[in-house]
Design a binder for these strands. Structure first.
Lengths: 255, 255
DNA sequence: ATATATATAATCAAAAACAAACAAAAGAAA
DNA sequence: TTTCTTTTGTTTGTTTTTGATTATATATAT
């Protein structure tokens, strides 16, 4: 990527999200944080954004043009680390599924531009990946869920029918040892259930806060999950219980 | 290859790909990098591209900044007037189709927030409508076409199968009296053909510049179109010919 | 408030990209 | 043809970019 392109990308990201951290830009652009800081200095000089400790903020009014960019995502740091860990599992020429979760969106943003087919029901994921030439993006159809900007409903499920992928990366609202994996929104739950069905391996992306919880709709049993990726704030007790249930768990540690 | 030819080639490549490296151009053109640098300097002088360390970036689509929507779209004013005219045809509880065109995008942005079901294959249209509570948005699935941010391919066509709508609003690249309606991109053309098939009435949104043109792929005959909405710059001769063919034409005048 | 972690600025070295100068080659004009 | 101009490739030295390192400043937690 050319310098000018990187600068445009930085400005775009800053304006989209309202603010962004140096570390995040470093990952997305695949350059060191030092380079990002120099970029930010120059972009501030040019009046295209405002610098602040740890990152940069948009120069436009803070009201993001779409309400969906809800800043202050809970457990953001953990989700990012989980996304980093998950991306490591992806290889060239994989066919994968990403669901409509914040963690999947992070994955999409830091995904390297390698030959890959990604199936998703998330507009955000699709848009994030549209900039990566080598990545083929396939979207489900369906009814648009305005808040999450994702496609759900019977036609979303049906549109997954013809596909078969190697790896599915899904998130959830709750993981309960006995009751299984749950989601607060039934429509999303049904789509996830279908995604599991057409994937060889399912990876569950869940930060520590999800364990022990039960949400409205159950969409999978624990044994249907091949691997859980979580963060190091997970309760050791939960970790132990999962071990006893023979569930593979990867803990994403700090860099 | 002549110098002028090489220059045209460079500009074309830069605009096609958004950016390109000096080394890449050197290989493609079979000249040394020094020559390419000299070329780029001159092309930048002439305002045909922008130089960046290591290569050059396109001068086009390079301000998707604040006026996310108001880019240098050709015949923007005409398209807006056509969109305004088309929106007048929409009533509460209609089920309509919007395609992945700029005009459809304008329509989406000025569509009143009334009970409505909109089927589209355009991410931009879907996002624009996501803010309108009373509008239900249904998207086709399919392969993401990165440049137009729309869904195409067999699965996009298939995902239209189960639907039936009252009105379809489509655009095109060319309208020819005898040869019919054409589009430059075959995949988009096939989707449009399907859209026409599932709509009771098809409205063709076409600014004056489209008449008499033929693009790569034909996707409809004139008689399949129920009404053409165009602007007042249309050639009276074309208007007369359409009249003789008994095609209903609405001319969007200035506000 | 103090300690600890994190972010930054300053400096350096290596690699890549560049600019300038010059000579050879190709075209245009006499 | 000869002469003149333009273009191109080569060489050389310079600048820019980047990542690494170190020391300093700033935030966060206890």
């Amino acid at each position: 990527m050319l310098v000018a392109e990187r600068h445009e990308k930085i400005v775009r990201l800053v304006n989209e999200r309202g603010s962004i951290r140096v570390s995040e830009l470093s990952e997305i652009c695949n350059v060191t944080e030092e380079t990002i800081r120099r970029d930010l200095d120059r972009l501030e000089q040019a009046g295209r954004l405002l610098r602040s400790h740890g990152g940069a903020v948009s120069i436009l009014d803070q009201q993001p043009e779409v309400p969906y960019m809800e800043r202050e995502i809970t457990h953001m740091e953990e989700k990012k680390r989980i996304a980093q860990e998950a991306v490591k599992l992806i290889e060239a020429y994989d066919r994968i599924i990403l669901d409509a979760s914040t963690t999947a969106w992070y994955m999409a943003s830091i995904l390297p531009d390698i030959p890959l087919t990604v199936v998703t029901n998330s507009i955000k994921v699709a848009m994030e990946l549209s900039g990566k030439e080598k990545v083929e993006v396939i979207s489900t159809g369906g009814v648009l869920a305005p808040r999450s900007l994702s496609f759900v409903g019977p036609s979303a499920e049906r549109s997954l029918d013809p596909y078969h992928v190697g790896k599915a990366f899904l998130s959830c609202k709750g993981i309960h040892l006995d009751r299984g994996i749950s989601e607060s929104n039934e429509m999303q739950a049904l789509v996830k259930r279908k995604m599991i069905a057409i994937a060889d391996r399912t990876y569950l992306l869940a930060d520590y806060s999800k364990f022990g919880l039960q949400a409205f709709t159950y969409f999978a049993e624990l044994h249907q999950i091949d691997e859980i990726i979580t963060d190091d704030k997970i309760d050791p007790l939960h970790l132990q219980e999962l071990k006893e249930k023979a569930v593979k768990v990867t803990v994403a540690g700090r860099a």
